[in-house]
Design a binder for these strands. Sequence first.
DNA 1: GATGAATCGGACTCTTGTGTCCGATTAATT
DNA 2: AATTAATCGGACACAAGAGTCCGATTCATC
Lengths: 154, 154
Amino acid sequence: MFTQTVEYALRAMICLASNPAPGQTVEQISRATQVPAAYLGKVLQQLVKQQLVTSRRGAGGGFSLALPPDQISLLRVVQAVDPIQRITTCPLGLEAHGVRLCPLHKRVDNALADMERAFSQSTLAEILAEPSDSIPLCNFPRGTPAPCSSPQPR
Amino acid sequence: MFTQTVEYALRAMICLASNPAPGQTVEQISRATQVPAAYLGKVLQQLVKQQLVTSRRGAGGGFSLALPPDQISLLRVVQAVDPIQRITTCPLGLEAHGVRLCPLHKRVDNALADMERAFSQSTLAEILAEPSDSIPLCNFPRGTPAPCSSPQPR
DNA sequence: GATGAATCGGACTCTTGTGTCCGATTAATT
DNA sequence: AATTAATCGGACACAAGAGTCCGATTCATC
């Protein structure tokens, strides 16, 4: 249903949002999100190009959010890497349908619209603030000693 | 978002449902749905295997619905050819998450659940019965002389 | 200025979805 | 029995998604 890339992008954005210090490297994000580093680089590029993320090259460089986490909806992330294509005209190209979709495509498009709405309604900030035993990307329940953002030795 | 195959399968099922006479051939369905005949054959095979469609080989053969149209939901068609994969366990394999999804994956899975629900609620029969100017697969507004199920010369 | 750490971009590989083609099989008709 | 109309299955071709690799570039630090 969703591409790997969308899943990866969401993880990366959550990772960036969960650590206030700017400039996480691909390596760091890769470790936290368990996304293959080389591919993660590509995904981050797309996010940079869509201006959801900023990057700095060279030593001390890395990636940061381009906006505060409460201003980035899941939808924006999804649209940045693999846009939800709404059905605007009849896929069969039937003239009689045109913009007035038939009942079949109307339903499919409505489902897509619901999806958009759902994703537009939650932001990175909201997700991180939500009280839950499971903290995104973190393999420790809330309140245990080792926080997920602590550097892990390799 | 949805694969071509899902779109094709839905069209084919609507086509079968819209014509009560059993045994439409790949050629006929292909013409009505504008799906490449050779590929449509593959898609129909999947629907046969999932027991939504029956087939008869040889002269006079073709495809028919295996169930009355009011007992076939869009969801069943979707699940037959490209199942919506719900998120049941943490995609990162984090033990602390397990079945208790984190807020991020919870939201994604909720969206998938909404999708399932939406598609489970409409049937082929309902779609065909819906009053609308646009009749599925048919390039003529309701009430015009040439019905979509009439045989087309080539 | 040299070194090292990092992103950036392009080229490549691998897998999967989409689509074609054809021979084998099945069944109705003549 | 021969012919014809149809599904069925496998092999192949092409394109796009997923993932790897490496050289070029940028920038901080020594």
